[in-house]
Design a protein around this nucleic acid. Structure first.
Length: 236
DNA sequence: GATTGATCATAC
DNA sequence: GTATGATCAATC
């Protein structure tokens, strides 16, 4: 039985969920074959491959724009590499720090930030991430749709506000991956080379090393578990 | 073994 | 070069 072919843009959440659930159990190899794409030979060269493979099948309005994957539904899709025991093996990239957003100052406030907008509604798609399993044999898991609850949003906001203080003050040197309990800032893009717009310590526009917001694995794991629990109807 | 900083592919 | 999609690998 072959996995579904590339689909049209889903019109409703239900349509998207139905489609993504059809993928559960299939391997990356099966999906790649269906799409006529070759699975990279080395895992080192497969970064981002899973996400890019799933997008056309689910009807994501892909491309490189900074809009949600499912624009009209306001849903962002993230594949998550899971260990044998079902915990995320990697952090999850959210969006860049600084850049054009600082021009409008929208990014400085949590409520209008790209981080919050990106995480308002996320479709988590777990995929086997055990390095012992060849890329082609890794299986797609059961996806869940998640919206941060009050507790989760507070956690994110606290970290965001703390991290953005460094951005506001131009203290890029001190803005390392050590900061933040659930949300952190790390380098993004080619090391050394990649740059983005920010402000320096005098508040002037300046080029700074490109960085991105990332969710820590423990938070992503909890989010997926919580989404599962919330979406499960239990008997009274 | 977990984590931070470095790195890889692709589209435009 | 900048955005998307992420994971690798040196270090703690």
């Amino acid at each position: 039985m072959l996995p579904p072919e590339p689909g049209r843009v889903p019109r409703t959440e239900e349509e998207l969920l139905t489609r993504v659930r059809m993928l559960a159990g299939y391997t990356i190899g099966q999906l790649a074959e269906r799409l006529g794409r070759k699975v990279p030979s080395e895992t080192r060269r497969a970064k981002g491959f899973f996400g890019q493979l799933l997008e056309p099948v689910l009807g994501a309005t892909a491309s490189t724009r900074s809009t949600p994957d499912f624009e009209r539904l306001g849903i962002e899709m993230k594949t998550v590499p899971m260990s044998r025991v079902g915990v995320p093996l990697e952090s999850t990239y959210v969006c860049t720090v600084g850049g054009a957003g600082l021009d409008t100052r929208d990014d400085l406030d949590w409520v209008t930030s790209r981080v919050r907008h990106k995480l308002t509604r996320v479709l988590w798609v777990p995929i086997q991430g055990d390095p012992a399993i060849p890329l082609s044999d890794r299986r797609i898991g059961a996806a869940v749709l998640w919206t941060p609850d009050e507790t989760e949003e507070q956690q994110l906001r606290r970290d965001f506000d703390e991290l953005m203080d460094y951005v506001r003050l131009g203290r890029w040197q001190e803005l390392t991956g050590h900061l933040g309990t659930v949300l952190q800032v790390r380098p993004k893009g080619d090391s050394g080379g990649a740059q983005a717009w920010g402000v320096d310590e005098e508040g002037r526009r300046a080029k700074i090393p490109a960085r991105g917001f990332y969710l820590r694995p423990a938070f992503t794991g909890a989010a997926i578990r919580n989404a599962l629990n919330r979406n499960t109807v239990r008997p009274p």
